[in-house]
């Protein structure tokens, strides 16, 4: 084992003081392929959005094939309360977008507990009208609608390398399935292997 990990540490009685300064929270969405919607991946903390994007690439961008990442400050969100039932908006007052208004990205949550997924974008003068327009147009079948100013979302460049091209089966369950099965077959009956595998988790990533 490395020497440091074996070291006997001695510490002062008290921890050093809290680190001062701002650390912001960012929301991260990933797209699995070009033109696929961006789906909520997770949060991260970072001092600014530029670093947040690179950190997001090296974490959420490596979990599964990923062609694009969006990041925005958590404070940029305007959203409806999360409804108990799916929404069924009957608003007919919706007007056409004015090209001079700022752009907003609309995210929706289909069921409680689900992740938020990119639905569309629209233009509106402010967050309130963006949200009501988003609900009118895209709220059907959703329990929550969220709008985020387009300008506040930092995205990776189109075509940017995020997901690595080298063999990554070492970090996926399917990289082991065959070898595990073969080795089990040497010592167990097939039905015992199947029974035992029932409590596995499906190989997602």
């Amino acid at each position: 084992m490395s020497k440091i990990r074996q070291r006997n540490f001695t510490f002062a009685d008290e921890l050093p003081p809290h680190a001062d300064g701002v650390v912001r929270s960012y929301v991260v969405y990933t797209a699995r392929k070009d033109d696929a919607p961006h789906r909520y991946a997770g949060y991260l903390n970072a001092p600014d959005i530029a670093l947040a994007v690179s950190l997001a690439c090296e974490h959420y961008g490596q979990d599964e094939a990923c062609t694009g990442i969006w990041v925005h400050d958590v404070q940029e969100i305007t959203e409806t309360p999360c409804a108990m039932e799916k929404m069924n908006p009957q608003d007919t007052s919706d007007t056409t977008d004015c090209e001079s208004d700022p752009a907003w990205v609309v995210f929706g949550q289909k069921r409680r507990g689900d992740i938020h997924v990119e639905l569309a974008s629209l233009r509106a003068a402010d967050s309130e009208s963006a949200l009501s327009r988003a609900v009118a147009r895209h709220g059907g079948g959703m329990v929550q609608i969220r709008v985020v100013p387009h300008a506040s979302i930092h995205a990776t460049e189109p075509g940017q390398l995020i997901w690595r091209t080298h063999d990554q089966t070492y970090r996926m369950a399917r990289g082991y399935s065959k070898s595990v099965r073969m080795k089990w077959e040497a010592v167990r009956k097939a039905e015992d292997i199947d029974e035992y595998r029932k409590d596995d988790i499906k190989d997602h990533f």
């Binding site: 991260l44 903390n45 970072a46 690179s54 950190l55 090296e58 974490h59 490596q62 080298h166 970090r171």
Partner: peptide, 13 residues
């Protein structure tokens, strides 16, 4: 934590 994760991705590379 975030940097730890990023750094590990690079080690794996």
């Amino acid at each position: 934590l975030e940097e730890d994760i990023a750094s590990s991705s690079m080690s794996q590379d």
